[in-house]
């Protein structure tokens, strides 16, 4: 097991190198001069533009820029700055907690609602509750996140006033609506996935045996049915947590949450290569670490899976 983990950790190194190179190249490839666009319709004077280009190595060829960037990262832990001179590291440490909170709340919300809805649907197969879950999940999956977010904001924020419309001013409560918007699709996927898994499980031999032994229905479903049906659900949720980062770009912008996603969005627009690379690399790391964790949990849930 330890050897397996070490091997996986070593694989992180090329992943990080290649992803930073690709991201840097992509930002570099965006046409146009970012410094020229900084000031909008009213351009800055040539002298100021030139000194900024010099300061951010924008006059160098791509590979030199990238090398200078990586050199700074490895020799001085210098992740660069925005065009306004703010260190990228500052931005990440300020914004990471917001994104982590959002991801955490989303994870919990989608797990609770998804699992309850899925289980209820399976238990009440073909009855009203089941139909309700089936129809509502299709609707949710079909709706763009953008629409879901605005609907939530309008209904529960503005009209009913149950939750704040935007910002992080009210602690956990501020994250509920964004979390529902961010997790809506996965929530529906979890419900549908669990429903079908649980239906399969409930028809299997070991469940019938348990029922025949005279166990109560809740115990049969809870201990025997659910446990086996959860394996694919956990895999899905792990992978989903990793991909959730890209969803934060939209949701954080709409709900005005000062997290990493919002920053990526504005930095891509401003062509701030160093910021985009810093944050996206973090997302990549997040992705590979979570995948590793999911694989490990897999082994714990199902003893038949072993790693060498």
């Amino acid at each position: 097991m330890t050897r397996y983990i070490i091997r996986r950790l070593l694989q992180f190194i090329p992943v990080v190198f290649i992803s930073t190179l690709i991201v840097y190249a992509l930002v570099f490839a965006i046409p146009g001069d970012p410094i020229r666009a900084l000031a909008g319709d009213r351009a800055m004077s040539e002298a100021v533009q030139e000194s900024l280009r010099e300061q951010y190595n924008l006059n160098d060829p791509f590979i030199v820029q990238y090398a200078k960037y990586m050199w700074g990262v490895f020799t001085a832990l210098d992740f660069g700055t925005t065009f306004q001179g703010r260190p990228v590291l500052d931005i990440i440490t300020q914004r990471l907690p917001v994104t982590l909170q959002l991801a955490g709340v989303t994870f919990v919300v989608q797990a609770i609602i998804g699992v309850i809805a899925g289980a209820l649907a399976a238990i009440n197969r073909d009855r009203f509750l089941d139909r309700l879950v089936q129809v509502s999940t299709v609707v949710v999956v079909a709706m763009p996140v953008l629409v879901i977010a605005f609907l939530l904001q309008l209904t529960f924020g503005l009209n009913l006033g149950w939750f704040p419309i935007s910002g992080t001013g009210q602690g956990l409560r501020s994250f509920i609506l964004p979390a529902i918007a961010l997790g809506a699709v996965s929530m529906a996927m979890i419900a549908r996935l669990l429903r079908s898994e649980l239906l399969d499980a409930l028809q299997s031999d070991y469940v019938r045996t348990a029922t025949a032994k005279g166990l109560t229905r809740s115990r049969v479903i809870g201990r025997h049915g659910m446990r086996n049906s959860m394996i694919p659900v956990v895999t899905f949720m792990g992978a989903d947590l990793a991909t959730m980062m890209s969803g934060t770009i939209l949701v954080e912008t709409i709900f005005n949450l000062p997290g990493l996603g919002e920053q990526v969005f504005s930095s891509i627009q401003a062509q701030e290569g160093t910021v985009v690379v810093g944050i996206v690399t973090l997302f990549v790391l997040f992705f590979v670490v979570i995948n590793l964790i999911v694989d490990i949990i897999y082994g714990l849930l199902d003893p038949r899976i072993r790693y060498e």
Binding site: L154, L158, S166, I254, N256, F265
Partner: peptide, 17 residues
């Protein structure tokens, strides 16, 4: 109060925040 999206700020004014 800094907003990234004016549409969000619009709703906040509507709600009186």
């Amino acid at each position: 109060m800094i907003y990234n999206d004016v549409a969000t700020a619009y709703q906040e004014v509507q709600a009186g925040n």
